[in-house]
Design a protein around this nucleic acid. Structure first.
Lengths: 220, 220
DNA sequence: TTGCAATTCAAACACTTGTATGAAACTATC
DNA sequence: GATAGTTTCATACAAGTGTTTGAATTGCAA
Protein backbone atom coordinates (compact mmCIF):
# COMPACT_ATOMS: atom_id res chain seq x y z
CA UNK A 1 0.00 0.00 0.00
CA UNK A 2 2.02 2.82 1.40
CA UNK A 3 2.62 5.77 -0.80
CA UNK A 4 0.84 5.13 -4.09
CA UNK A 5 2.57 8.28 -5.15
CA UNK A 6 4.73 6.58 -7.76
CA UNK A 7 1.80 4.68 -9.19
CA UNK A 8 -0.32 7.74 -9.83
CA UNK A 9 2.64 9.75 -11.08
CA UNK A 10 3.21 7.08 -13.70
CA UNK A 11 -0.45 6.98 -14.66
CA UNK A 12 -0.63 10.74 -15.04
CA UNK A 13 2.58 10.96 -17.04
CA UNK A 14 1.58 8.11 -19.30
CA UNK A 15 -1.84 9.58 -19.96
CA UNK A 16 -0.35 12.96 -20.79
CA UNK A 17 2.27 11.57 -23.15
CA UNK A 18 -0.08 9.17 -24.88
CA UNK A 19 -2.65 11.92 -25.33
CA UNK A 20 -0.07 14.22 -26.86
CA UNK A 21 2.03 11.94 -29.01
CA UNK A 22 0.07 8.73 -29.42
CA UNK A 23 1.00 5.21 -28.42
CA UNK A 24 3.33 4.73 -31.33
CA UNK A 25 6.32 6.70 -30.16
CA UNK A 26 6.08 6.92 -26.40
CA UNK A 27 8.53 4.62 -24.70
CA UNK A 28 8.66 3.43 -21.14
CA UNK A 29 11.73 5.59 -20.67
CA UNK A 30 9.79 8.66 -21.81
CA UNK A 31 7.11 7.91 -19.26
CA UNK A 32 9.40 7.38 -16.29
CA UNK A 33 11.33 10.51 -17.22
CA UNK A 34 8.12 12.55 -17.30
CA UNK A 35 7.03 11.02 -14.01
CA UNK A 36 10.44 11.35 -12.37
CA UNK A 37 10.54 7.75 -11.28
CA UNK A 38 12.85 4.86 -11.94
CA UNK A 39 12.57 2.74 -15.05
CA UNK A 40 11.82 -0.42 -13.12
CA UNK A 41 8.90 1.21 -11.33
CA UNK A 42 6.51 0.53 -14.19
CA UNK A 43 7.08 -3.18 -14.15
CA UNK A 44 7.05 -3.25 -10.38
CA UNK A 45 3.71 -1.47 -10.06
CA UNK A 46 1.89 -2.60 -13.16
CA UNK A 47 3.61 -5.78 -14.27
CA UNK A 48 4.19 -4.70 -17.85
CA UNK A 49 3.73 -1.82 -20.23
CA UNK A 50 0.63 -3.39 -21.71
CA UNK A 51 -0.97 -3.74 -18.31
CA UNK A 52 -0.26 -0.08 -17.63
CA UNK A 53 -2.01 0.90 -20.85
CA UNK A 54 -4.88 -1.43 -20.12
CA UNK A 55 -5.39 -0.07 -16.60
CA UNK A 56 -5.28 3.47 -17.93
CA UNK A 57 -7.83 2.65 -20.58
CA UNK A 58 -10.34 0.81 -18.42
CA UNK A 59 -10.34 3.46 -15.72
CA UNK A 60 -10.77 6.26 -18.23
CA UNK A 61 -13.28 4.28 -20.18
CA UNK A 62 -15.66 3.71 -17.31
CA UNK A 63 -15.21 7.32 -16.23
CA UNK A 64 -16.22 8.83 -19.55
CA UNK A 65 -18.96 6.30 -20.10
CA UNK A 66 -20.39 7.18 -16.72
CA UNK A 67 -20.21 10.85 -17.63
CA UNK A 68 -22.11 10.34 -20.87
CA UNK A 69 -24.68 8.06 -19.26
CA UNK A 70 -25.25 10.56 -16.49
CA UNK A 71 -26.27 13.19 -19.03
CA UNK A 72 -28.41 10.69 -20.84
CA UNK A 73 -30.23 9.45 -17.75
CA UNK A 74 -30.89 12.98 -16.56
CA UNK A 75 -32.41 13.89 -19.89
CA UNK A 76 -34.57 10.80 -20.08
CA UNK A 77 -35.85 11.15 -16.54
CA UNK A 78 -36.73 14.75 -17.16
CA UNK A 79 -38.68 13.74 -20.24
CA UNK A 80 -40.46 10.89 -18.49
CA UNK A 81 -38.40 8.09 -20.02
CA UNK A 82 -38.03 9.65 -23.42
CA UNK A 83 -35.55 12.40 -24.27
CA UNK A 84 -35.47 14.51 -27.46
CA UNK A 85 -33.06 13.10 -30.00
CA UNK A 86 -30.94 16.26 -29.98
CA UNK A 87 -30.33 15.92 -26.27
CA UNK A 88 -29.37 12.29 -26.60
CA UNK A 89 -26.91 13.08 -29.34
CA UNK A 90 -25.53 15.95 -27.34
CA UNK A 91 -24.91 13.61 -24.42
CA UNK A 92 -23.13 11.26 -26.81
CA UNK A 93 -20.72 13.62 -28.53
CA UNK A 94 -20.67 16.65 -26.22
CA UNK A 95 -18.30 15.46 -23.50
CA UNK A 96 -15.68 14.20 -25.92
CA UNK A 97 -15.79 17.30 -28.10
CA UNK A 98 -15.58 19.58 -25.10
CA UNK A 99 -12.66 17.62 -23.70
CA UNK A 100 -10.65 17.63 -26.90
CA UNK A 101 -11.34 21.00 -28.51
CA UNK A 102 -11.46 24.52 -27.20
CA UNK A 103 -8.78 26.60 -25.53
CA UNK A 104 -5.67 24.54 -24.98
CA UNK A 105 -5.50 25.05 -21.26
CA UNK A 106 -8.92 23.58 -20.58
CA UNK A 107 -8.67 20.47 -22.67
CA UNK A 108 -8.84 17.24 -20.75
CA UNK A 109 -6.01 14.79 -21.07
CA UNK A 110 -8.51 12.06 -20.31
CA UNK A 111 -10.64 12.87 -23.33
CA UNK A 112 -7.64 13.22 -25.60
CA UNK A 113 -6.26 9.95 -24.34
CA UNK A 114 -9.52 8.21 -25.14
CA UNK A 115 -9.51 9.62 -28.66
CA UNK A 116 -6.01 8.28 -29.16
CA UNK A 117 -7.16 4.94 -27.87
CA UNK A 118 -10.07 4.91 -30.29
CA UNK A 119 -7.74 5.66 -33.17
CA UNK A 120 -4.52 3.76 -32.73
CA UNK A 121 -6.00 0.57 -31.39
CA UNK A 122 -2.96 -0.93 -29.71
CA UNK A 123 -3.29 -4.63 -28.73
CA UNK A 124 -3.94 -4.31 -24.98
CA UNK A 125 -6.78 -1.90 -25.69
CA UNK A 126 -8.29 -3.81 -28.55
CA UNK A 127 -8.80 -6.75 -26.24
CA UNK A 128 -10.94 -4.73 -23.87
CA UNK A 129 -12.80 -2.60 -26.33
CA UNK A 130 -15.80 -4.87 -26.66
CA UNK A 131 -17.25 -3.36 -23.53
CA UNK A 132 -17.83 -0.16 -25.47
CA UNK A 133 -20.40 -1.93 -27.60
CA UNK A 134 -22.69 -2.40 -24.63
CA UNK A 135 -22.29 1.24 -23.80
CA UNK A 136 -23.23 2.34 -27.30
CA UNK A 137 -26.19 0.03 -27.27
CA UNK A 138 -27.60 1.97 -24.37
CA UNK A 139 -27.53 5.08 -26.52
CA UNK A 140 -29.08 3.18 -29.39
CA UNK A 141 -31.87 2.20 -27.03
CA UNK A 142 -32.51 5.77 -26.01
CA UNK A 143 -32.50 6.86 -29.61
CA UNK A 144 -35.00 4.17 -30.48
CA UNK A 145 -37.30 5.39 -27.73
CA UNK A 146 -36.97 8.94 -29.04
CA UNK A 147 -37.72 7.90 -32.61
CA UNK A 148 -40.06 4.92 -32.31
CA UNK A 149 -41.00 4.72 -35.97
CA UNK A 150 -37.45 4.69 -37.16
CA UNK A 151 -35.86 1.41 -38.23
CA UNK A 152 -33.01 -0.08 -36.24
CA UNK A 153 -30.77 0.21 -39.26
CA UNK A 154 -31.33 3.94 -39.47
CA UNK A 155 -30.73 4.33 -35.75
CA UNK A 156 -27.39 2.59 -35.96
CA UNK A 157 -26.35 4.54 -39.01
CA UNK A 158 -27.26 7.77 -37.28
CA UNK A 159 -25.27 6.78 -34.23
CA UNK A 160 -22.34 5.86 -36.44
CA UNK A 161 -22.44 9.15 -38.31
CA UNK A 162 -22.68 11.19 -35.12
CA UNK A 163 -19.57 9.56 -33.70
CA UNK A 164 -17.90 9.86 -37.08
CA UNK A 165 -18.35 13.60 -37.26
CA UNK A 166 -17.26 14.17 -33.68
CA UNK A 167 -14.18 12.00 -33.78
CA UNK A 168 -13.04 13.03 -37.23
CA UNK A 169 -13.42 16.69 -36.38
CA UNK A 170 -11.24 16.20 -33.33
CA UNK A 171 -8.61 14.21 -35.18
CA UNK A 172 -8.41 16.56 -38.12
CA UNK A 173 -9.05 19.80 -36.34
CA UNK A 174 -5.83 21.48 -37.44
CA UNK A 175 -6.37 20.35 -40.99
CA UNK A 176 -9.87 21.82 -41.07
CA UNK A 177 -8.53 25.07 -39.68
CA UNK A 178 -5.84 25.20 -42.33
CA UNK A 179 -8.17 24.12 -45.11
CA UNK A 180 -10.68 26.83 -44.24
CA UNK A 181 -7.93 29.36 -43.57
CA UNK A 182 -9.24 29.90 -40.10
CA UNK A 183 -12.83 30.43 -41.17
CA UNK A 184 -13.94 27.36 -39.24
CA UNK A 185 -13.40 28.17 -35.59
CA UNK A 186 -12.59 24.97 -33.75
CA UNK A 187 -12.22 26.83 -30.49
CA UNK A 188 -15.92 27.64 -30.40
CA UNK A 189 -16.75 24.24 -29.00
CA UNK A 190 -20.43 24.80 -28.51
CA UNK A 191 -20.80 25.77 -32.14
CA UNK A 192 -19.05 22.56 -33.15
CA UNK A 193 -21.31 20.51 -30.88
CA UNK A 194 -24.36 22.25 -32.33
CA UNK A 195 -23.26 21.52 -35.88
CA UNK A 196 -22.58 17.86 -35.24
CA UNK A 197 -25.83 17.38 -33.34
CA UNK A 198 -27.78 19.24 -35.98
CA UNK A 199 -26.50 17.16 -38.87
CA UNK A 200 -26.87 13.90 -36.97
CA UNK A 201 -30.43 14.86 -36.09
CA UNK A 202 -31.19 15.53 -39.72
CA UNK A 203 -29.70 12.20 -40.67
CA UNK A 204 -32.04 10.53 -38.19
CA UNK A 205 -35.24 12.43 -38.84
CA UNK A 206 -35.18 13.30 -42.55
CA UNK A 207 -37.57 11.58 -44.89
CA UNK A 208 -39.47 9.96 -42.03
CA UNK A 209 -40.70 6.49 -42.84
CA UNK A 210 -39.62 6.74 -46.44
CA UNK A 211 -36.01 6.87 -45.29
CA UNK A 212 -33.32 7.99 -47.62
CA UNK A 213 -34.01 8.49 -51.27
CA UNK A 214 -31.84 11.31 -52.50
CA UNK A 215 -30.94 10.81 -56.11
CA UNK A 216 -32.67 7.59 -56.62
CA UNK A 217 -32.47 4.19 -54.89
CA UNK A 218 -35.55 2.09 -54.66
CA UNK A 219 -35.30 2.01 -50.87
CA UNK A 220 -34.66 -1.40 -49.46
CA UNK B 1 17.61 0.20 -64.82
CA UNK B 2 17.68 -3.47 -65.51
CA UNK B 3 15.05 -5.55 -63.87
CA UNK B 4 12.98 -3.27 -61.70
CA UNK B 5 11.38 -6.48 -60.63
CA UNK B 6 12.66 -6.29 -57.08
CA UNK B 7 11.60 -2.67 -56.70
CA UNK B 8 8.01 -3.27 -57.64
CA UNK B 9 7.83 -6.50 -55.66
CA UNK B 10 8.84 -4.54 -52.59
CA UNK B 11 6.33 -1.79 -53.29
CA UNK B 12 3.52 -4.26 -53.76
CA UNK B 13 4.37 -6.25 -50.67
CA UNK B 14 4.73 -3.15 -48.54
CA UNK B 15 1.42 -1.75 -49.70
CA UNK B 16 -0.36 -5.00 -49.01
CA UNK B 17 1.11 -5.39 -45.51
CA UNK B 18 0.59 -1.77 -44.53
CA UNK B 19 -2.98 -1.87 -45.77
CA UNK B 20 -3.68 -5.01 -43.76
CA UNK B 21 -1.82 -4.43 -40.51
CA UNK B 22 -0.97 -0.74 -40.37
CA UNK B 23 2.40 0.92 -40.19
CA UNK B 24 2.80 0.20 -36.51
CA UNK B 25 3.75 -3.42 -36.65
CA UNK B 26 5.07 -4.12 -40.10
CA UNK B 27 8.83 -4.52 -40.08
CA UNK B 28 11.27 -4.37 -42.93
CA UNK B 29 11.82 -8.08 -42.48
CA UNK B 30 8.10 -8.71 -42.91
CA UNK B 31 8.14 -6.80 -46.16
CA UNK B 32 11.14 -8.53 -47.68
CA UNK B 33 9.75 -11.90 -46.65
CA UNK B 34 6.44 -11.13 -48.35
CA UNK B 35 8.28 -9.88 -51.44
CA UNK B 36 10.77 -12.76 -51.47
CA UNK B 37 13.76 -10.48 -51.69
CA UNK B 38 16.81 -9.90 -49.56
CA UNK B 39 16.68 -7.65 -46.53
CA UNK B 40 19.24 -5.23 -47.92
CA UNK B 41 17.22 -4.70 -51.09
CA UNK B 42 15.01 -2.08 -49.48
CA UNK B 43 17.91 0.14 -48.55
CA UNK B 44 19.58 -0.47 -51.86
CA UNK B 45 16.55 0.50 -53.94
CA UNK B 46 14.88 3.11 -51.74
CA UNK B 47 17.58 4.39 -49.42
CA UNK B 48 15.62 3.87 -46.24
CA UNK B 49 12.36 2.56 -44.87
CA UNK B 50 10.94 6.05 -44.61
CA UNK B 51 11.72 6.80 -48.23
CA UNK B 52 9.96 3.60 -49.22
CA UNK B 53 6.86 4.68 -47.33
CA UNK B 54 7.05 8.17 -48.76
CA UNK B 55 7.36 6.93 -52.34
CA UNK B 56 4.44 4.58 -51.81
CA UNK B 57 2.33 7.37 -50.40
CA UNK B 58 3.02 9.99 -53.06
CA UNK B 59 2.42 7.63 -55.93
CA UNK B 60 -0.84 6.38 -54.44
CA UNK B 61 -1.85 9.85 -53.43
CA UNK B 62 -1.62 11.36 -56.89
CA UNK B 63 -3.32 8.30 -58.32
CA UNK B 64 -6.41 8.48 -56.13
CA UNK B 65 -6.56 12.25 -56.34
CA UNK B 66 -6.53 11.99 -60.10
CA UNK B 67 -9.30 9.41 -59.89
CA UNK B 68 -11.50 11.67 -57.77
CA UNK B 69 -10.81 14.74 -59.89
CA UNK B 70 -11.63 12.84 -63.04
CA UNK B 71 -15.12 12.11 -61.72
CA UNK B 72 -15.50 15.68 -60.59
CA UNK B 73 -14.39 17.25 -63.88
CA UNK B 74 -16.65 14.97 -65.87
CA UNK B 75 -19.63 15.94 -63.75
CA UNK B 76 -18.91 19.65 -63.95
CA UNK B 77 -18.38 19.61 -67.69
CA UNK B 78 -21.60 17.76 -68.19
CA UNK B 79 -23.39 20.37 -66.13
CA UNK B 80 -21.80 23.29 -67.91
CA UNK B 81 -19.31 24.16 -65.17
CA UNK B 82 -21.64 23.42 -62.29
CA UNK B 83 -22.40 19.94 -60.96
CA UNK B 84 -25.16 18.96 -58.52
CA UNK B 85 -23.87 18.80 -54.97
CA UNK B 86 -24.74 15.12 -54.63
CA UNK B 87 -22.56 14.25 -57.58
CA UNK B 88 -19.66 16.25 -56.22
CA UNK B 89 -19.91 14.52 -52.88
CA UNK B 90 -20.15 11.19 -54.59
CA UNK B 91 -16.94 11.89 -56.46
CA UNK B 92 -15.33 12.80 -53.15
CA UNK B 93 -16.24 9.79 -51.03
CA UNK B 94 -17.25 7.20 -53.60
CA UNK B 95 -13.87 5.92 -54.76
CA UNK B 96 -12.51 5.50 -51.25
CA UNK B 97 -15.61 3.75 -49.94
CA UNK B 98 -15.74 1.45 -52.93
CA UNK B 99 -12.07 0.61 -52.54
CA UNK B 100 -12.27 -0.20 -48.84
CA UNK B 101 -15.67 -1.83 -48.34
CA UNK B 102 -17.57 -4.49 -50.19
CA UNK B 103 -16.65 -8.10 -50.92
CA UNK B 104 -13.18 -8.83 -49.66
CA UNK B 105 -11.79 -9.98 -52.98
CA UNK B 106 -12.55 -6.77 -54.78
CA UNK B 107 -11.21 -4.32 -52.27
CA UNK B 108 -8.29 -2.25 -53.45
CA UNK B 109 -5.06 -2.39 -51.51
CA UNK B 110 -4.35 1.13 -52.74
CA UNK B 111 -7.49 2.56 -51.13
CA UNK B 112 -6.93 0.64 -47.91
CA UNK B 113 -3.35 1.80 -47.80
CA UNK B 114 -4.45 5.41 -48.18
CA UNK B 115 -6.91 5.03 -45.34
CA UNK B 116 -4.16 3.67 -43.12
CA UNK B 117 -2.00 6.60 -44.13
CA UNK B 118 -4.75 9.03 -43.24
CA UNK B 119 -5.13 7.43 -39.83
CA UNK B 120 -1.75 6.51 -38.48
CA UNK B 121 0.13 9.52 -39.70
CA UNK B 122 3.67 8.22 -39.57
CA UNK B 123 6.41 10.88 -39.86
CA UNK B 124 7.46 10.43 -43.50
CA UNK B 125 3.84 10.78 -44.58
CA UNK B 126 2.99 13.69 -42.34
CA UNK B 127 5.68 15.70 -44.04
CA UNK B 128 4.08 15.31 -47.46
CA UNK B 129 0.47 15.50 -46.50
CA UNK B 130 0.05 19.22 -47.08
CA UNK B 131 -0.47 18.59 -50.76
CA UNK B 132 -3.82 17.07 -49.92
CA UNK B 133 -5.10 20.45 -48.83
CA UNK B 134 -4.85 21.80 -52.37
CA UNK B 135 -6.71 18.79 -53.60
CA UNK B 136 -9.54 19.28 -51.12
CA UNK B 137 -9.71 22.95 -52.01
CA UNK B 138 -10.64 21.97 -55.54
CA UNK B 139 -13.63 20.12 -54.17
CA UNK B 140 -14.50 23.06 -51.96
CA UNK B 141 -14.47 25.21 -55.07
CA UNK B 142 -16.83 22.90 -56.90
CA UNK B 143 -19.14 22.80 -53.91
CA UNK B 144 -19.16 26.57 -53.74
CA UNK B 145 -20.15 26.73 -57.38
CA UNK B 146 -22.93 24.24 -56.73
CA UNK B 147 -24.24 26.16 -53.71
CA UNK B 148 -23.47 29.81 -54.46
CA UNK B 149 -25.46 31.30 -51.60
CA UNK B 150 -23.86 29.11 -49.01
CA UNK B 151 -21.16 30.56 -46.78
CA UNK B 152 -17.59 29.31 -47.00
CA UNK B 153 -17.77 28.14 -43.42
CA UNK B 154 -20.73 25.90 -44.17
CA UNK B 155 -19.01 24.54 -47.25
CA UNK B 156 -15.93 23.54 -45.30
CA UNK B 157 -17.97 22.01 -42.53
CA UNK B 158 -19.94 20.02 -45.06
CA UNK B 159 -16.76 18.82 -46.69
CA UNK B 160 -15.37 17.88 -43.30
CA UNK B 161 -18.47 15.94 -42.31
CA UNK B 162 -18.61 14.08 -45.61
CA UNK B 163 -15.04 12.87 -45.21
CA UNK B 164 -15.72 12.14 -41.55
CA UNK B 165 -18.61 9.81 -42.28
CA UNK B 166 -16.79 8.02 -45.07
CA UNK B 167 -13.52 7.46 -43.26
CA UNK B 168 -15.05 6.61 -39.90
CA UNK B 169 -17.39 4.10 -41.49
CA UNK B 170 -14.44 2.41 -43.16
CA UNK B 171 -12.31 2.38 -40.02
CA UNK B 172 -15.07 1.11 -37.78
CA UNK B 173 -16.89 -1.08 -40.23
CA UNK B 174 -16.58 -4.25 -38.17
CA UNK B 175 -17.67 -2.42 -35.05
CA UNK B 176 -20.78 -1.09 -36.77
CA UNK B 177 -21.56 -4.57 -38.02
CA UNK B 178 -21.22 -6.00 -34.54
CA UNK B 179 -23.09 -3.14 -32.90
CA UNK B 180 -26.02 -3.53 -35.25
CA UNK B 181 -25.81 -7.31 -35.10
CA UNK B 182 -25.43 -7.43 -38.84
CA UNK B 183 -28.41 -5.19 -39.57
CA UNK B 184 -26.14 -2.60 -41.16
CA UNK B 185 -24.81 -4.22 -44.30
CA UNK B 186 -21.35 -2.82 -44.97
CA UNK B 187 -20.98 -5.01 -48.04
CA UNK B 188 -23.70 -3.08 -49.86
CA UNK B 189 -21.25 -0.37 -50.83
CA UNK B 190 -23.62 1.64 -52.97
CA UNK B 191 -26.08 1.87 -50.09
CA UNK B 192 -23.30 3.17 -47.85
CA UNK B 193 -22.26 5.73 -50.45
CA UNK B 194 -25.88 6.82 -50.83
CA UNK B 195 -26.29 7.25 -47.09
CA UNK B 196 -23.12 9.28 -46.68
CA UNK B 197 -23.90 11.47 -49.68
CA UNK B 198 -27.47 11.94 -48.54
CA UNK B 199 -26.55 13.10 -45.05
CA UNK B 200 -23.75 15.33 -46.29
CA UNK B 201 -26.12 16.89 -48.78
CA UNK B 202 -28.62 17.61 -46.03
CA UNK B 203 -25.89 19.15 -43.93
CA UNK B 204 -25.03 21.46 -46.81
CA UNK B 205 -28.50 22.41 -47.98
CA UNK B 206 -30.64 22.53 -44.85
CA UNK B 207 -31.70 25.81 -43.30
CA UNK B 208 -30.38 27.88 -46.18
CA UNK B 209 -29.02 31.24 -45.07
CA UNK B 210 -30.13 30.69 -41.50
CA UNK B 211 -27.44 28.04 -41.01
CA UNK B 212 -27.76 25.66 -38.11
CA UNK B 213 -30.98 25.56 -36.14
CA UNK B 214 -30.66 22.73 -33.65
CA UNK B 215 -34.25 21.71 -32.87
CA UNK B 216 -35.51 21.11 -36.32
CA UNK B 217 -34.81 22.73 -39.58
CA UNK B 218 -36.80 24.99 -41.77
CA UNK B 219 -35.84 22.89 -44.80
CA UNK B 220 -35.01 25.06 -47.71
C1' DT C 1 35.23 -14.97 -73.56
C1' DT C 2 36.58 -11.02 -70.89
C1' DG C 3 35.61 -7.17 -68.15
C1' DC C 4 32.79 -4.14 -65.66
C1' DA C 5 28.95 -2.32 -63.58
C1' DA C 6 24.62 -3.39 -61.38
C1' DT C 7 22.39 -6.21 -58.26
C1' DT C 8 21.84 -9.76 -54.68
C1' DC C 9 23.05 -11.93 -50.52
C1' DA C 10 24.52 -13.43 -45.67
C1' DA C 11 26.25 -11.51 -41.96
C1' DA C 12 27.08 -8.16 -38.70
C1' DC C 13 26.43 -3.50 -36.68
C1' DA C 14 24.63 0.01 -33.70
C1' DC C 15 20.77 1.19 -31.43
C1' DT C 16 16.31 1.03 -29.03
C1' DT C 17 12.86 -1.50 -26.97
C1' DG C 18 10.54 -3.88 -22.71
C1' DT C 19 11.88 -6.65 -18.92
C1' DA C 20 14.57 -8.84 -15.07
C1' DT C 21 17.92 -8.78 -11.29
C1' DG C 22 19.93 -8.01 -6.96
C1' DA C 23 21.55 -4.73 -3.95
C1' DA C 24 20.33 -0.46 -1.56
C1' DA C 25 17.07 2.60 0.79
C1' DC C 26 13.10 3.22 3.04
C1' DT C 27 8.93 2.24 6.30
C1' DA C 28 6.61 0.54 9.89
C1' DT C 29 5.96 -3.02 13.57
C1' DC C 30 7.63 -5.18 17.55
C1' DG D 1 16.47 0.34 17.88
C1' DA D 2 16.52 -4.17 15.44
C1' DT D 3 13.95 -6.53 11.84
C1' DA D 4 10.87 -7.87 8.13
C1' DG D 5 8.47 -6.20 4.18
C1' DT D 6 8.02 -2.86 0.76
C1' DT D 7 9.70 0.12 -2.55
C1' DT D 8 13.47 2.30 -5.22
C1' DC D 9 17.51 2.25 -7.94
C1' DA D 10 21.48 1.30 -11.23
C1' DT D 11 22.48 -1.96 -14.21
C1' DA D 12 22.24 -5.74 -17.22
C1' DC D 13 19.74 -8.71 -20.46
C1' DA D 14 17.47 -10.64 -24.50
C1' DA D 15 15.05 -9.57 -28.43
C1' DG D 16 13.94 -6.75 -32.24
C1' DT D 17 14.70 -2.69 -35.12
C1' DG D 18 16.73 -0.23 -39.45
C1' DT D 19 21.04 0.09 -41.63
C1' DT D 20 25.73 -1.05 -43.42
C1' DT D 21 29.27 -3.87 -45.33
C1' DG D 22 31.87 -6.51 -48.43
C1' DA D 23 31.97 -10.47 -50.88
C1' DA D 24 29.32 -13.23 -54.34
C1' DT D 25 26.45 -13.35 -58.33
C1' DT D 26 24.33 -11.70 -62.30
C1' DG D 27 23.68 -9.35 -66.78
C1' DC D 28 25.40 -7.13 -70.65
C1' DA D 29 28.69 -4.75 -73.77
C1' DA D 30 33.08 -4.98 -76.15
Amino acid sequence: MASDHTRSAILAAAERLYADRGFGDVTLRDIVAEANVNLAAVNYHFGSKDELIAELFVSRSIATNRERLRELKAAEEQGGGRAPIEVILRALVGPTLRGCLGPENQRSTAARFMIRASIESVPPIRRIKNRELDHLRKFAGAMRRALPDRSDVDIYWGLNFALAMAHHTIRESERLTKLSEGKCDLDDVEDVVARVVSVATMALTAGKVEAKAPSRIAAR
